[in-house]
């Protein structure tokens, strides 16, 4: 087969994007554990580890640019490099959101906000991320569409959680002033947590959308 080195560099890119995916998935898992267990040291480790994610992102971005400039990929190769170039941006953003989650957990002391199913939403978002990366690895178009459908479930969980927190906030204003103020802080934090988990789901859908474009040249999920 001609252009063996070029083919090797494409294989290497795929493998390294998946490694970045593993790294970000691990960080997301750690941040969710930090939220759930209020584990301060784990939360700090996630925040401190963001540089590694960013450096990985920049190195892969360079790799994609080099492939465009030096190898001029076309057809399926072009779609693969283009999709990978976009997917690493989504992974980097998920890394940032994992840091946000970790920081929220650091800010949370003794919460008076209502218990919402953060762990369930987190598990669902993380599940979407894992499934989108698996679809990228295997080039599975059906799995890409399933990720997009799965995001509806995450959105619904987030919606319910937000409504529940808001109702609690309204009810809390009848209490003493100090409780309402504490509640407001907690509510804001919980709502931000829910929002970031929802965004993680959206990024997972982006990964699936780019993968579907890569596999079938189908822009169906892009917008």
């Amino acid at each position: 087969m001609p252009r063996e080195h070029y083919q090797d560099s494409l294989d290497e890119l795929r493998s390294d994007v998946l490694s970045m995916g593993d790294l970000v998935t691990e960080r997301l898992g750690d941040s969710l554990a930090a939220v759930e267990r209020r584990d301060e040291s784990l939360a700090r480790a996630v925040a401190d580890g963001d540089d590694e994610v960013n450096e990985t992102y920049l190195a892969l971005e360079d790799r994609c640019v080099d492939l465009f400039a030096l190898q001029q990929p076309v057809a399926g190769d072009l779609r693969f490099v283009t999709a990978s170039f976009k997917i690493i941006t989504d992974l980097e953003r998920i890394g940032d959101l994992a840091v946000n989650l970790a920081n929220y957990s650091l800010a949370a002391r003794e919460t008076v906000a209502p218990e919402v199913a953060i762990d369930a939403i987190g598990a669902a978002s993380r599940g979407l991320l894992e499934r989108s990366l698996a679809a990228y690895e295997t080039g599975d178009a059906a799995a890409c569409r399933a990720v997009a459908a799965g995001d509806d479930e995450v959105d619904a969980l987030c919606q319910r959680a937000s409504e529940s927190v808001t109702r609690e906030l309204i009810a809390g204003t009848d209490d003493d002033g100090w409780a309402a103020e504490r509640l407001l802080d907690d509510v804001s934090r919980v709502l931000l947590t829910v929002r970031d988990l929802e965004r993680i789901g959206d990024h997972a859908v982006n990964i699936a959308a780019r993968t579907l474009y890569m596999v079938e040249n189908d822009p169906e999920l892009l917008y």
Binding site: M1, P2, R3, Y6, Q7, P73, V74, A75, G76, D77, L78, R79, N217
Partner: peptide, 19 residues
């Protein structure tokens, strides 16, 4: 043709897999 060739043989040729 260069982004999404229909023919697999054409894909192999333009991506350099055609030996």
């Amino acid at each position: 043709v260069f982004e999404d060739p229909h023919s697999e043989r054409v894909e192999d040729y333009i991506t350099g897999k055609f030996g």
